[in-house]
Computed example of a mutant assay.
Amino acid sequence: MTIHVSVPRGLKVKGLKVRDRHARALARRRAPVAPLDPAAPVLGRIGTLEVRLARHAGEIRAAQKLRYEVFYEEMRAQPSLDQRLLRRDKDGFDRICDHLLVIDRADGTSRIVGTYRLLPQERAALAGGFYTAGEFEIDGLVARHPGKRFLELGRSCVLKAYRGKRTVELLWQGIWSYVVANRIDVLFGCASLSGTDPAALAEPLALLRDQAPPPAEWSVGAVAARRAPRAPASSPVHDARRALGALPPLLKGYLRLGGYIGLDAVVDHQFNTTDVLVVLPRERISQRYVAHYGAGADRFAA
């Protein structure tokens, strides 16, 4: 399950409205504090925000606390007893994943305000599979492309007051740096629409069907027992603008980048979402986005 953000064009701090600044100040006070490693390499910086990988268990625990706040307290997901007691969103995949962090260093503090979980193929193989395989037939996709290296993206999470272009700019900068450093060929993961009634989401799902259908080589079905009823192939999109506005920012970002959206959907009652699968071959990423997020890009603006 993921919460979700868009491919951005930048946002100036001085352009924030007063209420936005107050919201961020409150969010900073509530955001998880961890003994952050001051020597960790920074992958990108905009204003007081920076992005990098977690370096130790304390930072991962802080990311889990942030996920709990957003998924379970804000979004009303259903925690397990262990999660409720610890007030952390955690599972067995956390220990084998890398964790991307967005950190706000405003006012002399260092607080985690966003995170993304990254699972490269070789670690998933050691763990017995990808997390997404619980919803979608990922093994078949990987088997069809034996020469390519896959990266699963998941557990995307940003504090509400930070769900803007600046934070997402940094998440994508961090992901792209990771993709280049680890020679990743294909990115994939679940993206979530709020709600568990696919019929109520018929228009945005139909828009995705029309805008980004995968060719056969990148098509992935849902696990049969989890598959939600599909909208008829002939069902129209009556109001494309409204349907686009209903999409989470992350899905809009994947569409801009060239991602394919699977035709199947899965209802996740624990997280109160309807999930679709996004598959993004690296070769599909527009060159202008490669230039925007690549090594030569100015992602360290003051």
Rank of each mutant, 00 (worst) to 15 (best):
Thr2Ile: 15
Val5Ala: 13
Val5Met: 15
Val7Thr: 13
Pro8Ala: 14
Pro8Ile: 11
Gly10Phe: 10
Leu11Asp: 15
Lys14Trp: 11
Leu16Pro: 00
Leu16Gly: 00
Lys17Ala: 15
Arg19Ala: 14
Ala23Met: 05
Leu26Phe: 13
Arg28Glu: 00
Arg28Leu: 14
Arg29Lys: 12
Val42Tyr: 08
Leu43Glu: 03
Leu43Phe: 09
Gly47Asp: 05
Val51Ala: 11
Leu53Ile: 03
Ala54Arg: 04
Arg55Cys: 10
Gly58Lys: 09
Ile60Arg: 10
Ala63Ile: 02
Tyr68Pro: 01
Tyr68Ile: 02
Tyr68Ser: 00
Phe71His: 04
Glu73Val: 12
Met75Gly: 01
Met75Asn: 06
Arg76Phe: 10
Arg76Glu: 13
Arg76Tyr: 05
Gln78Met: 15
Pro79Glu: 03
Pro79Thr: 04
Ser80Cys: 01
Leu81Asp: 12
Arg84Lys: 13
Lys90Pro: 00
Asp94Pro: 10
Leu100Ile: 01
Arg105Asp: 05
Thr109Asn: 08
Ile112Gln: 03
Thr115Met: 12
Tyr116Gly: 00
Leu118Ser: 05
Leu118Asn: 00
Leu119Ser: 07
Pro120Met: 09
Gln121Ile: 02
Arg123Glu: 14
Ala127Thr: 09
Gly128Arg: 07
Gly128Ala: 06
Gly129Leu: 08
Phe130Tyr: 12
Phe130Ala: 07
Ile138Leu: 10
His145Phe: 06
Pro146Thr: 03
Pro146Phe: 02
Lys148Leu: 14
Phe150Pro: 04
Phe150Ile: 05
Glu152Trp: 02
Gly154Glu: 06
Arg155Ile: 03
Ser156Tyr: 02
Gly164Thr: 11
Lys165Met: 11
Gln173Asn: 12
Ile175Lys: 03
Tyr178Gln: 07
Val179Thr: 07
Asp185Pro: 05
Gly189Cys: 00
Leu201Thr: 03
Ala202Thr: 06
Pro204Cys: 09
Arg209Met: 09
Pro213Asn: 05
Pro214Tyr: 07
Pro214Phe: 08
Ala216Gly: 03
Glu217Thr: 12
Ala225Pro: 00
Arg226Met: 14
Arg227Asn: 04
Ala231Arg: 12
Ala231Tyr: 07
Ser234Cys: 10
Ser234Val: 11
Arg241Met: 10
Ala243Tyr: 00
Leu244Phe: 15
Gly245Cys: 11
Ala246His: 09
Leu247Thr: 01
Leu250Arg: 07
Gly253Asn: 06
Ile261Ser: 12
Gly262Arg: 00
Asp264His: 11
Ala265Asp: 01
Val266Cys: 00
His269Thr: 15
Gln270Trp: 09
Gln270Asp: 15
Thr273Gly: 01
Glu283Tyr: 02
Ser286Pro: 05
Ser286Arg: 13
Tyr289Val: 09
Tyr289Asn: 08
Val290Thr: 11
Gly294His: 12
Ala302Asp: 14
